[in-house]
Every structure is written in C-alpha cells, then in structure tokens.
C-alpha cells in the first residue's frame, strides 16, 4: 500500500466513530421523524396512519407560511446584518493590540452567554414599561418613537432580529479575521503601491480573496437562521397571536403544547427540506458569480 493509500485508510477508520454517532443521532432521527409525520399520534396511545395529511395540513396552514416568512426575515437580517458588520469589524480588529483583543472578546462574548440570558436581557431592553430602550428614546426627546417593541406585530419581527444579529456576530468575526490574516502581506503592499485606497482595497482585494470564506459564512447563516428558536422563544414565545412564530417555534408548539407529535414531526421534516433547498439555492447563486 502506498503512503497516501495508508493515510486514506487511516482517515476512513478515524472517521468511523464520528460517522456512527452522526448516523445514530442525526440521520436516523431525521428518517424516523419523517416517518412519524405520516401518523396521527399524540405521543402516547395508539397512532393512526394518515398518509400525507399532516404534510398537506402544514402546507395549507397560513401560520406555517407566516412562520416561513418570519424565518426569511431572520435569514435576511443575518446575511445582511451579521456578515457586513462582522466583515467591517474584522478589518478593524485584525491586528492584535490589547484594545483590539478586548473589543474582539467583547464582540464574541454573547456566544458564550446562555441564550436564555440573552433573551431575558433583551426582553428587559424592550420591556414596555421599564425597558431601557423606551427610556432612552424618551430621554433624547424621541418620545414619539416609543413602541411596544415585542408586542406590536408590525415591528416585532425586526425587534427580535436585533438580538439575533448581536448575539451571533462572534463566530463570523473569528472566521473573517482568520481569512484576512491569510491574505499575504505582499498582496497588500502591492495594492498600496498601486494606489488602492481603503475602500478599493476592501472591494478588490479582501472580498475576492476571502470569497470562499464568505460563502461558508452565508451557508452557516442560512442554516443557523432556519434553526433560530431559543432567543425568540424566550422573548416572545412566538406571540403575540403568533406574530413572531418561526418554523421551529411552530413545530415546538404543535408538538409539545398541543401534543400533536405526528404533525410536529411532519413540520420538522419540512423544515429540513426547506433548509436544504435554501442552502443549495444559495450555493448555485454564488457559483454563477
């Protein structure tokens, strides 16, 4: 056996345990869940095979599509909020002075705080009576801007997007800093000699050179946003009147509040399908560029 062949065999053997765990805890449950989606089942007691009824019901439920639309808002907020901010911050913070390291940790901090805590903090920021946001608006003479941020269905989706953006910049920042540090200094020097100003340097050098990283970040953004659940569950629980319902909270409420396990399983299978379509679609779009 050649050296590289041996290496490959070694890698395969090394991957086996992970693959096994992945299959048992990810792939099999997905298949099972899709299967339960064909049943009318309350979690206990007998279940009844009902074919595609659950799937049809979900696709025919306006709340499901509302949840989907809300999810797209989160996706958009993540891609157009998190990524640009993370990119700009990574340019500012790519060196390692004490100050920069401090800001970097500060930006990363929400990642290590439990999302329940973040949800509670932002819940109090938006609080209709004692919330600091309304308080500040009033102090600055912007009393007319005061809103019930989480209770008003015309704005609450945007309100809950803010903490989602804030809490998840960290990993993209790290990703981008690593990518930018990989751009060799010769390129930067050459650009400088050719007279590239900061903005040109960003568009013409940095973005193209870390494009692969950005693509990965976008995929992570999409899949992460479709999974979004915890922050919003804490802040609004999907309410009021299901105005901030996401696919995941919709699934959760149907499964664990209404006890329709079969229906909830069908919805989670649909979430997986939708995620796959979106991720593949975004890959295709970016490949064309």
């Amino acid at each position: 056996m050649t050296n590289s062949g041996r290496l490959r065999a070694f890698i395969a053997v090394g991957l086996l345990p992970t693959l096994f765990i992945y299959a048992v805890f990810v792939l099999v449950p997905i298949v099972w869940s899709a299967y339960y989606g064909f049943f009318d089942w309350k979690g206990i007691g007998a279940s009844k095979f009902i074919g595609f009824d659950n799937y049809a019901e979900a696709l025919g439920d306006p709340i499901f599509w509302k949840a989907f639309k809300n999810n797209l808002i989160i996706v958009a907020a993540s891609i157009f909020g998190q990524l640009p901010i993370a990119l700009v911050l990574s340019l500012i913070l790519r060196k390692s002075t004490f100050f920069q390291r401090f800001v970097r940790s500060a930006v990363f901090m929400p990642m290590v705080v439990a999302s329940v805590v973040i949800g509670m903090i932002w819940g109090y920021i938006y609080h209709p009576q004692i919330g600091i946001l309304n308080f500040l608006l009033e102090q600055f003479g912007l009393g007319s801007w005061i809103r019930d941020w989480l209770g008003d269905p015309s704005i609450n989706m945007y309100a809950v997007s803010a903490p989602v953006i804030w809490a998840n910049i960290g990993p993209y920042l790290v990703l981008f800093i690593a990518a930018i540090q990989n751009i060799s200094s010769e390129v930067e020097d050459a650009a400088k000699i050719d007279g590239a100003v900061k903005s040109k340097w960003l568009y013409m050098i940095v973005v193209p050179m870390i494009w692969d990283t950005i693509k990965v970040a976008i995929v992570l953004c999409i899949s992460g946003s479709l999974k979004a659940f915890d922050l919003i569950y804490i802040m609004t629980g999907g309410g009021p009147a299901q105005s901030t319902e996401l696919l995941a909270t919709y699934m959760y409420n149907n499964t664990f509040e209404v006890f329709r396990y079969g229906y909830g399983s069908a919805v989670s299978t649909l979430i997986i399908l939708i995620s796959m379509v979106l991720v593949l679609g975004s890959q295709l779009l970016m490949r064309r560029k």
């Binding site: 819940g123 938006y126 609080h127 209709p128 009576q129 019930d148 989480l150 209770g151 609004t236 009021p240």
Partner: peptide
C-alpha cells in the same frame, strides 16, 4: 389594559 399587555 396597560400598554404591552401581550409582552408582560
């Protein structure tokens, strides 16, 4: 009801 009754 007070404002924000749905978020308290």
């Amino acid at each position: 009801f007070q404002t924000g009754a749905n978020s308290l």
